[in-house]
């Protein structure tokens, strides 16, 4: 015997046709015996049936039009959005490259090259400018040399022998030696009290022997030298320079009594080599 509660629960299922035939028979047999459930069932069935009779609410035709409009709008926006998806990214980049960046790039490159060209053209060193610069540099270096020669000259006057030595060594840095300097050097060579200074001066002058006045000075110097060391060095230089004019002076030197024996033999050898 099923109770009313069980049956009640099944009524809704019956309405929905969700009962098995067996269950249905069970409910039906109960309803026959139970007026309360019978009443319940009838009321429920009535409500259920009436629910089915309720007219189905219908949307207005305008809704479809609105939907279609929405769909269309959406479709177009989606198409636009799709251009931002990865698949279209490459195309987008390509498009940008072709449409926007390319002319810009070309334009900027053009500007850069124009700028470079203009800069080069404006600052292109003209020949006159080059020569002007060169001239300035030359002038500067000449001035520099002049200054050095001035320094040399003043240094040669210095009482200190070592300062005078320094002065003589400066001649090595000169490309072109001023006649004043040569004169000063020759004076030093003939008159300097210090033998060492005279020897260094002699070496320096030997370097400058291309100058005829130097040669002349060197030959004449033979007569002024009394130091054996300087005499020997001079004799060596005469051989080196193949200065035949010195033979006469060397012979005169041989005649002098105070000349050292080794120097004399050196001079004789030199005369032999020169003649």
């Amino acid at each position: 015997m099923t109770n009313c509660k069980d049956i009640e629960e099944k009524l809704a299922d019956w309405l929905e046709n969700q009962l098995s035939p067996q269950e249905q028979a069970q409910v039906e047999s109960h309803l026959k015996q139970c007026p309360a459930c019978q009443q319940e069932w009838q009321a429920m069935q009535q409500v259920w049936m009436q629910m089915g009779q309720l007219p189905v609410p219908k949307p207005s035709p305008a809704m479809k039009i609105r939907f279609e409009a929405m769909l269309e709008t959406y479709a177009t926006t989606v198409e636009e959005q799709q251009t931002y998806s990865p698949r279209h990214l490459l195309q987008l980049v390509k498009q940008l490259w072709q449409s926007v960046w390319m002319p810009r790039l070309v334009y900027s490159l053009l500007l850069i090259s124009i700028g470079l060209g203009a800069g080069y053209w404006l600052h292109k060193p003209s020949d006159s400018q080059i020569s002007q610069y060169q001239h300035q540099i030359d002038t500067l270096s000449i001035q520099m040399q002049e200054m050095r020669q001035m320094m040399l000259l003043s240094l040669l006057e210095n009482p200190s022998a070592s300062e005078r030595l320094r002065a003589v060594s400066l001649t090595q840095e000169f490309k072109r030696v001023d006649p004043k300097v040569i004169k000063a050097l020759l004076t030093t060579l003939n008159n300097d009290p210090n033998v060492n200074v005279r020897l260094v001066t002699l070496e320096a002058l030997a370097e400058l022997a291309d100058d005829p006045s130097v040669r002349e000075g060197l030959v004449q110097s033979l007569a002024h030298q009394d130091s054996p060391l300087v005499q020997v060095a001079l004799a060596d230089i005469m051989v080196k320079l193949q200065e035949k004019r010195s033979i006469e002076l060397l012979r005169e030197l041989l005649k002098q009594k105070h000349v050292d024996g080794t120097v004399k033999s050196k001079i004789q050898q030199t005369i032999k080599e020169l003649s």
């Binding site: 629960e9 309405l15 429920m44 409500v47 259920w48």
Partner: peptide, 17 residues
């Protein structure tokens, strides 16, 4: 769902009556 439908039907019926 079954239980809910049943209860809802019951309530509707009661309100209706």
């Amino acid at each position: 769902v079954k239980v809910k439908v049943h209860r809802a039907m019951n309530q509707l019926k009661n309100i209706y009556l």
